[in-house]
Amino acid sequence: MNDTAPRAVAPLAASEVVLRLLNPFTGIAGLMTEALNLSHEASSLELAVKTTRRETNVRVVGVRLAAKVAIATLRQRALRNLQRIRQLQVNIRANRQQQQNLIRLISRATIRMVNATTSEEAAAMREVIASAAELLRRDAEGVATRLRRLLAMPALTEGRPA
């Protein structure tokens, strides 16, 4: 699209026509040449209008297509992120089961320790509690680290209002 818009021409005044016709060598020829030039330019402008419309249609289609591609990419990325989150949720639930088992083990060991009759038995239970507690701590830390990494992912931090 051309930014320099063509300008309209002023109509010829009768006095100007008479003045131009007073010169027999350039009068009629000049008027005819001018008219033919204007006709040619009008045809060019009609062609330019068609080209502009075609260009606009192409650009509109391009813009719409680009937007569709961008939206599809965004949706795909969001879907991937959601799948990642869902997978983590599944892992958290599985992990929870394991942690519950450890907790049960600790509470059973605690009861046995409380009711222990010998110091050896108490020491063995203490070992069990220590190992289970250590595993529990590591598990919780592992899941928390994964969650922290998830919360720091670009989709949740980039371009967000501060």
């Binding site: 699209m1 051309n2 818009a5 063509p6 300008r7 309209a8 021409v9 109509p11 010829l12 026509v17 016709l21 009068g27 009629i28 008027l31 005819m32 001018e34 008219a35 033919l36 204007l38 006709s39 330019e41 009008a42 402008l45 009609e46 330019a48 209008v49 502009t52 419309r53």
Partner: peptide, 26 residues
Amino acid sequence: GTIAALFNASQRNRFNETVSYHNKTV
């Protein structure tokens, strides 16, 4: 000369209409 002037005027008119149509379309 009058015929030439009338033809000139009609072509000016056509040109002006085309210019207006072109600018509006743009």
